[in-house]
Write a protein that binds this DNA or RNA. Structure first.
Lengths: 345, 345
DNA sequence: CAGACTTATGGTAGCGCAACCATGATTTTG
DNA sequence: CAAAATCATGGTTGCGCTACCATAAGTCTG
């Protein structure tokens, strides 16, 4: 009876080549094949050769699900960023991807669209992949996200900003200090009416931190402080140009403008050029990020260079280090920034 | 004896909340919970409520591996691109990601770095995820890649270019025709000494196709044809500026330059401006892709706009359609392009 | 050279879920 | 109103791999 059932119940399987097939061809036990693939040193050279032959002859590809299920460990590393349309995150992802791929790990992309609710849902979903670790942009999370992440108990790196209370590890830079540095530079250059332009500062709170830095510098120098000139659209060069014009109309006394990022800054510069507004004579323009193109405009754009790709690489390295149980380095890394003074200020 | 063994052999499992835990709390069988989650309509409203309560009370997260292993089906869709440093692919990925995420599918990023060998390895690795479908940039693959893909037998979309022999489905545009269109435009405008500038054309064969298009147009018009001016570095605005200067020195007779992409074109334009080279009076400059910034330079850059995000969305939609067994649309979609004539030509 | 230790290989069970079949309850049909 | 059809739920098995333990063979020690 039982045997009948078993026969009947055989499930149509995927038809793919399995470990067992390889083992049969190589004349060894499946577990030996498993070892030959996962820890080659633990298998004799002779068997390893036979097994390698069988693997390539049959075109065997390891079933990731079975492996992950059996070992309760995966080589998945979710990377959660607020946006994909921003060149900055792309470069970070590039850095991460390069390091992870070399080590045989697979990044899983998650996009929160600057929404903490979405972030929380994303984290929950991505935890279903039993990740070996996680990389998350930013240090502001909903309480639920924090609970999930802390409860998960695997290595985690929060990136982009450098902050005091990382959940686990942290690789980034201080946007406040970057803003202060830019503020001090503008003040030193003799500008006295300095404004900040950025978009959606409640969501893009790192841009807001740069504003705060500028504001600190202005306060310290006893110069007039202004609320940021905020726009509602996604940052882009076109918006940078538009806001430049609007802002100069609304506040003609301004003699310097610090843009929240280089997309805006470059756009403003190109627009100024087109409109015949002399930069920096009429108004100085500064950006943030150090995109390649910022060096090529006329005048070139003063900006703060953030080591974006390096943040990604470093975060991935620290994560892998912890996953592999190496001795932990510092929990927090400040990658710093570089003020690049060019002709636009 | 057996029971002792069983007791001893219990494996330390992940400790996560499982379907069984939810089932116990809700007072139903595990399979019912499974159904409540995967096909809510097949379970009575009362039970569904109990189950939902138990799920959120316990913080249950579905184990992706167990599900995929049991059902021999996954919600993974690998996306294989030749580069991540290129804005073009980012936008494609964005389009894909958006559509897939809405439908509950997860893209897996693969980067071939324009290397067909790497592509083949990547495909093999990614097939280990039993993908529901695949998206691959380009239609040139090694024989091994083709064999793998054809053998896999699940929906596949080749994107970016529009070609005659897709393995399965195809969404893209004809780069040859785009090159021809740009060539005809330049000829019509009265330029007679037209050159092409691009990098690594053997690998970036889509750029080479754009050159071929230009060359066709020149041949048809009986105008002088030249081999492309090729550089060895990755395309960037800085390289665009450098190659502009070198090319004008080597071939001062040129009156128009078609750059393989907008990064190069914008860089050339900015450099011309800086060097005081009048565009288009001394030399006309054209690009390809239609990056936002190309509209903002002075003069604005004539370019060919490719619907990058749309390619991604469309590819993802067609893939999902096939995965869900909807009636197949056309196997090949030509998304076309738009010649954007601006002041630089 | 006996006993302890190391190394290479194998057997078995189980990871968590969904497919498959079974069953009992409910509804429909002639 | 009995038989058939439908529906909701459950029991059992297996997806393909690796953890755990067992075992046989080889190596070392004094």
């Amino acid at each position: 009876m039982t045997s009948t059932r078993m026969a009947v119940r055989r499930r149509a399987h995927s038809g793919a080549v399995t470990l067992k097939d390889v083992a049969e061809r190589a004349g060894v036990a499946p577990i030996t094949v498993s070892r030959a693939l996962n820890a080659p040193d633990s298998v004799s050279a002779a068997l390893r050769l036979q097994i390698d032959e069988a693997v390539s002859a049959l075109g065997y590809v390891r079933n990731q699900y079975a492996g992950a299920l059996a070992s309760a460990a995966s080589r998945i590393i979710p990377v959660i960023v607020p946006s994909l349309s921003n060149a900055v995150f792309i470069e970070v992802i590039q850095g991460i991807q390069q390091v992870l791929e070399e080590a045989g790990y697979q990044p899983l992309l998650g996009n929160t669209q600057y929404d903490l609710e979405r972030e929380s849902k994303l984290v929950a979903t991505l935890l279903g992949w039993s990740p070996a670790g996680l990389i998350v942009a930013g240090m502001r999370h909903s309480e639920r996200t924090r609970t999930l992440l802390r409860g998960y108990g695997r290595p985690l790196v929060e990136i982009m900003e450098y902050g005091a209370q990382p959940i686990d590890m942290n690789v980034g830079l201080s946007h406040i200090r970057a803003g202060e540095a830019m503020g001090r530079h503008l003040i030193e250059r003799g500008y006295r009416q300095i404004g900040f332009i950025g978009g959606r500062l409640k969501q893009d709170y790192r841009a807001a931190q740069r504003f705060r830095g500028l504001d600190n510098a202005l306060a310290a120098a006893g110069l007039p402080r202004r609320p940021p000139f905020e726009h509602d659209e996604k940052s882009s060069a076109a918006i940078g140009g538009d806001t430049l014009m609007q802002t100069l109309e609304r506040a003609p006394e301004l003699d310097a403008l610090f843009f929240a990022n280089d997309d805006l800054g470059v756009g403003a510069l190109l627009r100024a050029q087109r409109e015949g507004i002399p930069v920096p004579a009429r108004v100085a323009i500064a950006g943030f990020n150090g995109l390649d193109i910022s060096a090529l405009t006329t005048p070139a754009l003063t900006t703060i260079v953030s080591p974006r790709q390096r943040i990604g690489e470093l975060a991935a390295r620290k994560l892998l280090g912890r996953i592999h149980g190496e001795k932990p380095g510092p929990a927090r890394v400040d990658v710093g920034f570089r003020l690049e003074i060019r002709a636009s200020t």
